[in-house]
Nucleic acid binder design. Structure first.
Lengths: 218, 218
DNA sequence: ATGCCTTTGTGAACGCGTGCACAAAGATGG
DNA sequence: CCATCTTTGTGCACGCGTTCACAAAGGCAT
């Protein structure tokens, strides 16, 4: 039986082994003392907890460049997501195949949602259309929305919205870049590091994540 | 002179006013007691600290759907970014206009970087090409990379990489969705909330951000 | 000029998550 | 069957960030 110790996993992930064990313990006691964790069983337990073992039908609304990119993105299927339909308001797009699926017109939105039991919707429309699409999705039964449009959506209680701003990551890079350039000569007038408000984590990071103030102008 | 109090801003942003004042204090003492902060001056100070007043030339490599979507994204210009060039390996793409810019061939990558003093690169290529493109960008002088390809890039010390995984946000939504469904009948076998490892913050959130374990299978 | 009212800036306390360190558990070998 | 060795699961302490609370500061009216 192939196993891994918390120490191995922690080293690989770059985190503390105690934290990792403590996190795992919230899923139950699946390890064996003196041996470690059964890899296969652990993968299953984590997958189940994260919802990877379920099948999540999603719809993508707004099949422009971004919508098409999302439709073609291979990472969804392996994470338990299934693109139930691609929806666009442009009648000229209707029926046209994108990533192997025919684009459906917005008129069909409600029926697609209910027929497929979709509870997660992705909005990749222009900013102007986002709120309207959002309202229709919610009315049709969607309770989680991933918003790529540069608008803050308002939704009723009980509906989750996550907004992805493609420029934020770029801005964090620029912030670090500025620091790099500044450190060469002038000792920053700002104290070393403190006062956080927004934080982001990702793989592929050098050093601590950038702390940026809570409010920023558009 | 239009002003805002820390209390007003804090309420609008949904954070504590003391934290906001403390954050601002790291930029210096720009407020006036009994009055608040001069809006215009505050915006300028924050903009400057975040690097919004600078001009950041960036290149986008890989002009597929995603690359094109990024090139068309309006949010960059207002954040101080300027798309210096779009680069693609496909000779058929060369010269073709995307978002008003002619696509350049990969052969020109090095000269474009140095001619424009580009220090930030965006990779929107297929996974297979990402590391190679990354190496060339770094060799040409790029010190910050935003990676949309589903690969972990390895870079030399001193180079920042941020990876954007378009499916992670979706996965967080699915995780919450699962919780919603589960709470209806079975009281979750997992203790209420604890043991965090990855965290994400965004506008548009209902309730606390989802805590998900540090390691997950592909 | 003086007193009052508002809001900042920050010292200090609180709370929470991380990391340490160890006892308990189980496997393994003699 | 016992001793030993490894690794888990977790109580506890430390450290850091958030929040409280208030003195100092400045505006404004009288």
């Amino acid at each position: 039986m192939p196993t891994v110790s918390s120490e191995e996993l922690a080293t690989a992930a770059g985190v503390n082994s105690a934290k990792l064990r403590k996190d795992f313990s919230y899923l139950g006691s699946y390890g064996t003392r003196g041996v470690g964790y059964d890899v296969e069983y652990l993968v299953y337990q984590i997958s189940r907890e994260l919802g990877l073992t379920q099948d999540w039908p999603v719809v993508i609304v707004g099949i422009g460049n971004l919508g098409a990119a999302l439709a073609n993105y291979g990472g969804f299927a392996s994470r338990g997501f299934r693109v139930a339909a691609l929806i666009d308001a442009d009648p000229a797009m209707a029926g046209k195949p994108v990533a192997g699926l025919p684009v459906r017109h917005t008129d069909e939105l409600e029926s697609i949602i209910s027929d497929n039991g979709v509870s997660i919707g992705v909005i990749a429309t222009p900013a102007g259309a986002a709120q309207q699409v959002c309202d229709r999705l919610v009315a049709a039964g969607v309770t989680s929305i991933l918003n790529f449009a540069p608008t803050v959506l308002s939704v009723p209680e009980g509906v989750d919205v996550r907004k992805v701003d493609l420029s934020i990551e770029l801005q964090i890079l620029a912030f670090h870049e500025q620091r790099k350039a500044g450190e060469e000569n002038a000792p920053s007038p700002v104290p070393p590091r403190s006062g956080a408000a927004v934080r982001a984590a990702s793989e592929n990071r050098k050093g601590p994540d950038g702390d940026v103030p809570a409010v920023m102008p558009a």
